[in-house]
Design a protein around this nucleic acid. Structure first.
Lengths: 220, 220
DNA sequence: GGCAAGCTGACAGCAAGCTGACAGAAGGCG
DNA sequence: CGCCTTCTGTCAGCTTGCTGTCAGCTTGCC
């Protein structure tokens, strides 16, 4: 397992290196944006930890150029505290996860592992679309970073829509997923859940395509 | 990440290998006790999965000899169904976790990850969250520095929640961890333990997410 | 305008979870 | 061997709050 840590603050960089090495990675560090881009473009890493504030070239630009060039390695972005807009941009630029500073190194290592797991084939732990984020580990949903308190049923519905965010999910399929298809719940149980969800997520989050089904808002 | 799977049943060994490789490990297998001991003693593994019933040398003896020789890698022991005494011996011999057969491979992978996380946490045997501290070496739990007297069962529950503090642990998983075979214990044994624990730890320590499971309070 | 699909607030039933009491099991100790 | 202590599963009754149902409404479509 080979990792690249892109971070201009030498002390943090050293800490990153130590933590990741403790987790079993061979780690290289780099403090300059352009150098980082070059390394990420020419070398093969299993993981990149990328700070956004860099000399040379901005972290987001680095990331975008990697992705534009077809580099697909997992990238964990370090964002400034509470800078939500940075996170959104980071995700759009192709980040796989983000971690707000300051963070505990254990947290970083945990995320790194989650990324490795995801890359190793399985579903990701964190899914985002628009201003909604679903964390399948914690089984939580948050909106613009604000955690929402959902019931189990509501969570499963959102998570399912999020997993199938690239298509319209028929109501019948949702019913089957939620209730295991046997006793077809009297029609509008599903609609009741959707209504409650919309109240919590915000009106525009779940869209209806009349006669077809539901989908999560976000771009399309 | 390098793992050793010690298992004499060839089919199970193959399953183990596949599951762990799916989780990102490079996996070696071994079906004989003496060979296993030699490998574990001379090679560096990040994780060992060890079945107790082995030809050549008994699994427990292998483990004890590793520990006696100062080998500290995380070891996950596979025990026979319902064999309680084996578990206790396993812990005394230095196992980090145990899993009763038969088990689901996902469960194994989850445990393996938890072990890796623990091992990566600076090798520290002490975990803290909020005002709770769990010392996995001495198997003690304290609150604001005041040691609590917990029973074995209670300790294992708290420790497991602490090891998995970054997620909500489903009740079914806790049952499986505590009792091995889910069917054995009727309904609310788990809830009884939780109630007793809350009385000792303080009411807010263990939180319930209805329909999901339990998690330790702290921060989030 | 009329019909059907979908929405929503209210509400009651019900299941998940909590707790205190109790007794069987396990183990310690004389 | 027998008493005693501690642990822990079961039970019953309770609380909490999730969720399906209903009735009436809005929206989209022809």
């Amino acid at each position: 397992m080979r990792a690249l840590a892109v971070e201009d603050d030498a002390r943090i960089a050293a800490d990153l290196k130590a933590a990741l090495e403790g987790a079993g990675f061979r780690v290289e560090t780099c403090g300059d944006g352009e150098d980082a881009w070059f390394l990420g473009d020419t070398e093969d890493y299993d993981l990149v930890v990328l700070d956004l504030g860099l000399p040379g070239m901005d972290g987001l630009s680095v990331l975008k150029r990697w992705r534009a060039g077809g580099r697909e390695m997992p990238v964990l972005v370090l964002t400034a505290r509470g800078a939500w807009s940075e996170r959104v941009e980071g995700i759009e630029a192709g980040a796989d996860d983000y971690l707000p500073k300051p963070f505990r190194m254990e947290e970083l290592v945990a995320r790194a592992r989650a990324l490795m797991r995801r890359a190793a084939g399985r579903g990701s732990a964190i899914l985002s679309l628009g201003d909604l984020t679903v964390d399948t580990n914690r089984m939580t949903v948050s909106r613009r970073g604000v955690p929402l308190s959902l019931t189990a049923l509501e969570y499963r519905l959102v998570a399912y829509l999020m997993l199938n965010r690239d298509r319209v999910v028929p109501a019948s399929e949702l019913l089957e997923h939620l209730y295991g298809d046997e006793d077809a719940r009297e029609a509008n149980a599903l609609e009741a859940v959707i209504a409650r969800l919309r109240r919590k997520l915000g009106a525009g989050a779940i869209c209806t395509r009349r006669g077809f089904g539901y989908f999560l808002e976000g771009g399309s």
